[in-house]
């Protein structure tokens, strides 16, 4: 089974380089145990890839950053993403299917 099939697709946010991006990446490592995670670094952005599903919990990001972070703060640093996005007041999720 290749990485391109629906359920094994790598999904996740594309984060602008900066402190919010770094906090999101750290939080993703924290909240996606058991899933394969890759981070591609480009000059002005990072592409975070998590296999199957990527969860971003706002309280984990806040903890990593050292101050409260809301969805709107993450949105401001997220110019793109791959996967089907789902949002609520506590987390962002990116789904492969």
């Amino acid at each position: 089974m290749t990485d391109n099939t629906d359920e094994n697709r790598f999904v996740g946010p594309v984060m602008k380089a900066g402190e919010i991006g770094e906090a999101v990446i750290e939080a993703i490592h924290e909240d996606n145990e058991g899933r394969k995670i890759e981070v591609e670094e480009h000059e002005s952005y990072f592409r975070v890839k998590v296999q199957g599903e990527c969860v971003v919990r706002f309280d984990t990001v806040s903890e990593m950053l050292g101050r409260d972070v809301l969805l709107s703060d993450i949105e401001s640093s997220m110019p793109a993403f791959e996967g089907f996005i789902r949002t609520d007041s506590e987390q962002l999720r990116f789904l492969a299917k």
Partner: peptide, 27 residues
């Protein structure tokens, strides 16, 4: 997004920031 990477390399941070800011709405 892709072009913002080139812009950042070029030192045009104003343009790079503007491009990415716009794209957060688009996403």
């Amino acid at each position: 997004v892709a072009l913002s990477a080139d812009a950042a390399k070029c030192g045009d941070h104003s343009f790079a920031t503007m491009l990415q800011s716009i794209q957060t709405d688009e996403a």
